[in-house]
Design a protein around this nucleic acid. Structure first.
Lengths: 214, 214
DNA sequence: CATCAATCTGACCGTATGGTCAAGTTGAGC
DNA sequence: GCTCAACTTGACCATACGGTCAGATTGATG
């Protein structure tokens, strides 16, 4: 028992507690949805009294907003590999890997995001209209360039992006269904590798971006 | 105003009212989630007093259960086209068409299903373990046969099925995001056709099931 | 060690919600 | 037109929830 009961330093206390709360909140929001989540449960899971949550986050909605925003950031960062790539095979391959890894490491976050969008994005509509719209347009241009350079088949860039999002996020959002069909077991390391390989194979082949006849 | 205020016949009254309630419930559950939905709102949307809902459906959960079950049925029926098909190109193509059509016609239902699975299927876990598991195994066998007959490339059948589910249901579950990226407009008929074509092209090509060099 | 802002927390409050109920109303069957 | 089961509904209740608050505690600072 390394139960750390030393009196906490003042330094970084806020940061530490907010992290505790945000982690608990992400899980609870993911499992129960915004409406089903209760501040009491988040409090219990983070080990803090409920009134303390309201000290750091005045309302349930403000806490929820932070959770969604944090996820969106992680989600956007996965795009870097896309941009840095030389061609479609490398770029899309790396993007799939990155997003699959997010689905594996942050399944709760992905679920919160999905839930938010499904409920017509009451909290992050502005992000969709600005940041996400710009991001999508930028990536679509890259894809169109690749097509014009003959490095992949002509496909509607938007629908390709939707397919990338759908397939990769599916492994987080529907993990419970996948686990059930996997005999009730979470996917093993090897199965995750196989999943990544399958997605990459089908999509890259599907857009004619796989160089060797493999 | 054809406001039908004639006294209702006894015949089929129950059926009629249940349908009214179920339609309203599907929308409300889809937009607010189980926890966020209120019986009062469902009552208002169906034009019936709240106490009347509890006459037909004793609890909120029993109403919700019916909504989810109904969706699951629709969802399963789309599989018929898969089975009837002669080969992968025809079967998977028809399955994509059928599921895309469901996404278009029953977006609320798809969202309720997604939400239920994301929340660890508290209500339909038994369906996942029995009906869905059997269905998946059956379809996986068909795919494996096609592979052995050399009519498509070797791919893990489960991951192919996940991709089919993910891509088609994405157009329902994330319709708000898609609409936003579409300039705030819902997808037109032509855009739906393009979406279907894109999904089919990439996946069928991706598994080597497209006969002509098209 | 006195000060003070930051942090903590048990007790409390107003409200919204799922669900109940008893008293009606309706219409098919005779 | 009488009977009775099916249906309808306004009023009501217990509970759970988000949020508040006043008073206590803590620890950095001088």
């Amino acid at each position: 028992m390394t139960n750390d009961q030393r009196p906490k330093k003042r330094q970084g206390r806020r940061e530490e507690n907010e992290k505790l709360i945000l982690e608990a909140a992400e899980k609870v929001f993911a499992e129960a949805g915004f409406g089903g989540a209760t501040m009491q449960l988040i409090a219990d899971m983070s080990g803090l009294p409920k009134a303390n949550l309201h000290y750091y986050f005045p309302t349930k909605e403000s806490l929820y907003r932070r959770v969604v925003q944090d996820i969106f950031q992680i989600w956007l960062q996965a795009a870097d590999v896309f941009d840095a790539a030389d061609g479609p095979e490398e770029g899309i391959s790396a993007y799939i890997d990155a997003k699959m890894e997010i689905s594996r490491r942050h399944p709760a976050g992905s679920k919160v995001w999905a839930s938010e969008v499904m409920h017509r994005a009451p909290v992050i509509q502005d992000y969709l209209e600005t940041t996400l719209a710009e991001w999508t347009q930028g990536r679509a241009q890259i894809i169109e360039r690749w097509i014009q350079e003959g490095r992949m088949d002509p496909v509607n860039p938007n629908h390709l992006l939707y397919m990338l999002w759908a397939t990769t996020q599916h492994y987080a959002d529907f993990s419970h269904q996948i686990d059930t069909l996997n005999g009730g077991q979470p996917m093993s390391d090897a199965q995750w590798e196989e999943a990544k390989a399958s997605v990459k194979q089908i999509i890259l082949r599907g857009i004619g971006a796989l160089k060797p006849t493999n």
